[in-house]
Amino acid sequence: MWQWFLQLGSPRLFYSMTDRYLPWLTWFTVILLGTGLAWGLAFTPPDYQMGENYRIAYIHVPMATLAMGCYAMMASFSAGYLIWKIKVADMIAKACAPIGASITAVALATGSLWGIPTWGTWWIWDARLTSTLIMLFLYVGIIALRSAFDSIDSGARACAVLSLVGVVNLPIIKYSVDWWNTLHQGASNLSLSDTAANPPEVWIPAFFVGFGILGFFLIALILRTRNEILIRERRSQWVSDLVANNMKESGDA
């Protein structure tokens, strides 16, 4: 186990390992997403209150969950980079930021689209919406900070520090905004955790889509990390060999 962990820390081994597992992951994702989406969007019965509108939850809920999970992941890899100086950890953390920002944006956008028919407004300053928006700001700040540095190493360490500071702040933001909301307006019951009202034919496809989207996230993350590895290791022998090999293969075909 430890050996495996250490091997992933080497960019070259990360590259070759993901080479092996990426096709499997892709097939799993396609199957899960395909079944889940077809089932959830076409075959599950409509909700008695929201009609067909609720189906957007099949995208919205996994995205919103993943938006937070991605931040936690980015922060853990940042810590890994700061503590053990694992280069791949920083590359993964770097890949997390734009993906996390897009996921957060999708979660906000799908939430707004859902809000128009059900709440009658696409934006309210509700605690959940606001704290998600702030998380988007945190992602944007980390992307901006990284792009401001010329040196890869300084940028990586600065972003790692900022990600960890954001982790301390994220729960505080969450609770402060909850507080602020309850002071200003009555709590509107937007909780989606109320699974009792949802029969299995509603949540089983959600389960499929959820894992499918997780798989999609991992694929995007791995592909971005692989690109980053190729860019940073472009002077090393194995990358030149790889490129030469690919050129030859495409020349043969």
């Binding site: 901006a144 900070l145 905004v177």
Partner: peptide
């Protein structure tokens, strides 16, 4: 501003 204003919110 982009870095620290989100942290100022609480």
């Amino acid at each position: 501003a982009v870095l620290i204003l989100p942290l100022y919110i609480p």
